[in-house]
Design a protein around this nucleic acid. Structure first.
Length: 236
DNA sequence: CCATTAAACACCC
DNA sequence: GGGTGTTTAATGG
């Protein structure tokens, strides 16, 4: 378990700052707790902070006009989010919902903007961070359009291990099958079936309250059988 | 038809 | 109490 200062000092962007700059960021930042099930950000709220996850899990969700909710992606230990909204001086366009009791490192908007205006190395970090997230979202669209359910679960799980976005993820993914289903855009029992398929393929192990990833490259390149069709009903 | 899902249920951590 | 495995009926391509 880490504290606020450790999270800031071991972040991927800390090394882009001079010791003096970093010390000032540490001084201006603060910690916030969000209980499981509570919102950190809501669509329409003004964005006042850049958030880093000290410990916990947050998901980004949007709502359709009739109230249906869809989950885009999750952020876990060591991940940072909100920079895009802060850069635009905008309001949140997605909800940030804690699915575990979570502790957040909050870098005030004024601090974040000062770094953007004064530190070229920090901007380099932001570029690669945004680029990584862009690549992640492009991948998610690709999975959604081209892959069947089993492969979608495999790739969505694998995407949680992107080193630039999820720096401190172990091999155990602490997400219920319900939550994996939400991330992969399918029902719980379909996610359950996909997970068993992947377990049979030796890529992961299903455990209580989560899964252990055994073969990350295998998950990342999983294509399933015949574009994701299962139940080998191909004439025996 | 076939795949998927919501709802409901029975275990088990 | 919540996560998991399973069944059943309803839905939609």
């Amino acid at each position: 378990m880490q504290n606020l200062q450790e999270t800031l000092k071991t972040s991927l962007w800390a090394e882009t700052l001079t010791p003096k700059e970093l010390a000032q960021v540490c001084d201006e930042s603060y910690e916030m707790h969000v209980a499981a099930g509570a919102h950190l950000t809501r669509i329409g709220d003004a964005a006042n902070s850049w958030y880093g996850v000290i410990e916990g899990v947050l998901i980004m969700t949007v709502c359709s006009p009739d109230g249906k909710e869809s989950t885009f992606t999750g952020v876990t230990n060591g991940g940072w989010f909100g920079e895009g909204t802060l850069l635009k001086n905008d309001h949140w366009r997605y909800n940030g919902l804690a699915v575990r009791d979570s502790r957040l490192a909050c870098v005030p908007r004024s601090t974040f903007k000062r770094l953007v205006q004064t530190s070229l190395p920090f901007n380099h970090f932001l570029l690669s961070h945004l680029n990584a997230r862009l690549g992640l979202f492009i991948s998610l669209i690709e999975y959604d359009r081209l892959l069947g359910p089993d492969a979608r679960v495999a790739r969505c799980l694998a995407s949680l291990f992107h080193p630039d976005i999820y720096p401190r993820t172990g091999s155990f993914v602490e997400l219920s099958q319900e939550e994996i289903g939400q991330l992969s855009a399918m029902s719980r029992q379909r996610a359950n079936e996909a997970l068993h398929q992947l377990e049979r393929a030796g890529l992961l192990r299903i455990e209580f309250g989560g899964v252990s990833v055994l073969d990350l490259p295998g998950l990342r390149s999983y294509h399933g059988v015949a574009q994701g069709k299962r139940r080998g009903s191909a004439k025996s």
